[in-house]
Design a protein around this nucleic acid. Structure first.
Ligand SMILES: [Mn+2]
Ligand SMILES: [Mn+2]
Ligand SMILES: [Zn+2]
Ligand SMILES: [Zn+2]
Lengths: 169, 169
DNA sequence: ACAAAGATGCAACTTTGTTGCGTAAGGGGG
DNA sequence: CCCCCTTACGCAACAAAGTTGCATCTTTGT
């Protein structure tokens, strides 16, 4: 529940973020935006927490590992970072992807996610060349027929291969 | 690339497996079947390798971790097991699933998989109650529209929630 | 039966992730 | 602005997954 769309009206200067947001691009959040985000999620505002959100907003639709965040920030404690990421996931601010590489990747959530309910209905792409994982603007189909009596709570669709950047050269 | 269907004609006693197989159920492979499988895959036949295939065929559509296989066999070396599983994956005999638990799960491949090309077009289900991952007889739709210039090589669709057994009680 | 190619087993290591606990900091009430 | 309770941080210690190197054993084709 927060907004993050580089070209969206709300992001014209002077506009305050309030609730819903959608990640569609790299965007460096302003300090007040981050603070509001944390307030709305009932999370205490600390230096580390702000920096982590900052880092995640900068990478936009590119999901990054805990280790990558750690290196971007360089001052943060590794264990604290794990706990922050867990808190963000629980709060519905961030979603994680198991892309098959063995490490979780994290990205900002879109508007359809909320506390404890990650309606993460977009496809993720893992590029084996540049070793990056990104959130694609491709929606997971909802017409799948499951065997009876399965209770579906979450879905993760990971496609891997070669991304557009690595493919074009 | 090999066949494994409990009720399939080929599995009536006296029938020899040759190439294509499909895993759909628990089935304890015969020694000669396993040996043929390894021969066809150009893999040397060793005690450990046979036991690992045996173990995987027994679990059927339930994908298990390296650690679980290790415990089933109890004599195998942990590192050797990793290498065997990698060899099987490379050979297209076995596919692995990243179900979000942090450990890879392994299951026998179906007929549409071949060396280096895992057309793993079925959905996997992770049950958070009994902590099991299984291959569902649900096919991933092929009508997804990807952004241009992405080269799709593999797909993994993991659905999580509560499985039929845990849900019915 | 021999030799080359390949598989195994062990040690040592890396990386990811968790847990416990004392200390520091955030935020609401006064 | 200060107090105090709650929560977050930071460190140590640990657990578990997975990798690499290397010497030794096994498989397999000749
Ligand atoms: Mn995503
Ligand atoms: Mn499967
Ligand atoms: Zn790429
Ligand atoms: Zn279950």
């Amino acid at each position: 529940m927060a907004f993050l769309d580089f070209n969206h009206e709300r992001f014209k200067p002077g506009f305050e973020i309030t609730s819903t947001f959608v990640v569609t691009n790299n965007y460096r959040m302003k300090d007040t935006e981050i603070t509001n985000l944390l307030h709305n999620a009932n999370l205490r505002v600390t230096k580390s927490r702000k920096e982590v959100l900052q880092a995640l907003s900068e990478t936009g639709d590119q999901a990054i590992s805990s280790n990558e965040i750690e290196q971007k920030l360089s001052e943060i404690d590794r264990i604290t970072l794990y706990r922050i990421l867990k808190a963000y996931e629980d709060a519905g601010l961030v979603h994680s992807i198991a892309d098959g590489t063995g490490k979780k990747k994290y990205a900002m959530c879109s508007s359809n996610c909320s506390e404890g309910d990650h309606q993460d209905n977009h496809v993720h792409f893992y590029c084996r060349v540049c070793d990056t994982t990104s959130c694609l603007n491709v929606v997971i189909p909802t017409n799948l027929k499951f065997p009876t009596n399965y209770l579906v709570e979450e879905q993760q669709f990971v496609v891997s291969g070669i991304c557009k950047d690595c493919h074009n050269q």
